[in-house]
């Protein structure tokens, strides 16, 4: 099919995309790498000098760094646990013969389409607010002391909000995978005398394993970059209690005007993201071969 002519044509057609992405990837990344070895503060842009590994050292010895790494880890794993387990449960529920399945689906996936600042503000002001939020009303109804979510459990609050946003994604993908399970396989398992729990463990779960992998990997990529939800709720605090790596870098770079420090943090973030990306590419790449 591919004659020499079409090959040349194909190259020309791919060129704009490839060149744009190449520039988009290499230029800023090279600049980040360069800045990470410079003393460069936007407040004193005249005093730029070579810093060696100072920025990395500075970033590394900052107690906020380890806290932010820890917070990132807790945030990602917490959200993953909630969305994957919750997603499987809800997908199984929707897959039952229920009335109004279409509407239930629409209701469940809706949070995914809510832009992060709106999601965060709704939760902050209308659900979790210690004075006027629905949860506070609920606590008072039961005669309990309302919880000041963002002061007492800042990281957990962010986790809940982000999990609410991503639960639909996990549910939708797992539901799609669930519905592609061959009906005859289920019937065969029933004929073989497997009960509902056994069918779930031996048939459904293995069938879902790939979808679960995809959900985990793709969400991880996005969850490493959670930003707006923190910005409009806790602003990273109190202290650094809800600051993740993304937010710490943003703080260093934009609020502290420290280009070198922010760049060093950025490089660390790239390394972390690449570790995750490596596994994602392998999973997706395998699928391409089929």
């Amino acid at each position: 099919m591919a004659t020499q002519n079409t090959k040349t044509l194909a190259r020309v057609m791919m060129a704009p995309s490839v060149i744009l992405l190449l520039i988009w990837m290499i230029v800023p990344l090279a600049m980040t790498l360069y800045y990470s070895f410079q003393n460069y503060n936007l407040l004193t842009p005249m005093n730029v000098s070579f810093a060696g590994f100072f920025n990395y050292q500075y970033f590394y010895t900052d107690p906020a760094f380890f806290q932010s790494i820890w917070n990132t880890l807790v945030l990602v794993l917490g959200v993953l646990a909630i969305t994957v387990i919750g997603g499987i449960a809800i997908a199984l529920l929707i897959d039952q013969p229920i009335f109004g399945q279409g509407i239930v689906r629409i209701l469940v996936i809706s949070p995914f389409f809510v832009m992060p600042p709106v999601a965060a503000l709704i939760w902050k002001n209308m659900i979790m607010h210690p004075g006027y939020g629905v949860l506070a009303d609920l606590a008072q109804f039961f005669g309990a002391q309302p919880i000041d979510w963002f002061a007492q459990y800042p990281l957990l609050s962010v986790i809940i909000i982000v999990a609410w946003q991503w639960l639909p994604f996990a549910t939708l993908i797992l539901l799609t995978a669930l519905q592609s399970l061959d009906g005859e396989q289920k019937e065969a398992a029933e004929m073989d005398g497997a009960n509902a729990v056994q069918r779930f463990i031996h048939l459904t779960l293995p069938h879902l394993s790939r979808a679960i992998t995809v959900v985990i990997l793709i969400q991880t990529i996005f969850l490493l970059g959670v930003y707006a939800e923190i910005l409009v709720t806790t602003n990273g605090g109190p202290g650094y209690a809800s600051t993740n790596l993304t937010f710490l870098i943003y703080r260093t770079a934009r609020l502290g005007y420290d280009v070198g420090g922010g760049a060093a943090g950025g490089i660390i973030a790239v390394v972390l993201a690449n570790i995750v990306a490596f596994f994602l590419m392998r999973a997706v790449g395998k699928n391409l071969d089929k």
């Binding site: 992405l21 600049m31 990529i221 490493l224 770079a253 922010g262 973030a269």
Partner: peptide
């Protein structure tokens, strides 16, 4: 695959260069 990998780059890592550009 390479194109996809560009999607994996954390935005915050290139925040400063993009801002300065």
């Amino acid at each position: 695959m390479w194109m996809l990998s560009t999607k994996m780059m954390p935005s915050v890592a290139v925040l400063l260069p993009i801002f300065i550009i």
